[in-house]
């Protein structure tokens, strides 16, 4: 049962990723694109966690943690760039 649920939820998260990608391509402004990118980071963490449960290996945790850290930093940097036209003043 767990394996079936894992496959099903992976499919759901992949659909979510495609919706984000659509918003990122179509999004009318830069801010919308950053928001879509930030959501994509979080969804890819979800996919990695699901794969980790499927493989039964805790190693994927570190990848997920790294993506969480980098996702936040890059969102902050992109917002700062839009706000001030510069990242390091």
């Amino acid at each position: 049962m767990l394996n079936f649920v894992l496959v099903l939820v992976s499919a759901l998260v992949s659909i979510a990723l495609i919706l984000n990608l659509w918003r990122m391509i179509q999004g009318p402004g830069m801010a919308d694109r950053f928001l879509a990118l930030d959501t994509m980071y979080i969804n890819s963490i979800a996919l990695i966690i699901l794969y980790g449960i499927h493989m039964g290996s805790p190693l994927y945790f570190e990848g997920a943690l790294l993506i969480a850290l980098l996702g936040f930093v890059s969102t902050a940097a992109l917002s700062k760039y839009l706000l001030r036209g510069d990242i390091i003043e």
């Binding site: 759901l12 659909i15 979510a16 919706l19 979800a46």
Partner: peptide
């Protein structure tokens, strides 16, 4: 196993709802 599966399902549904809202 059932509890794990239920939490995974809830997680997947909320992730999907977040992206549906985004689009």
């Amino acid at each position: 196993e059932i509890i794990t599966a239920v939490f995974i399902l809830i997680g997947g549904l909320f992730t999907l709802i977040g992206s549906i809202g985004l689009s």
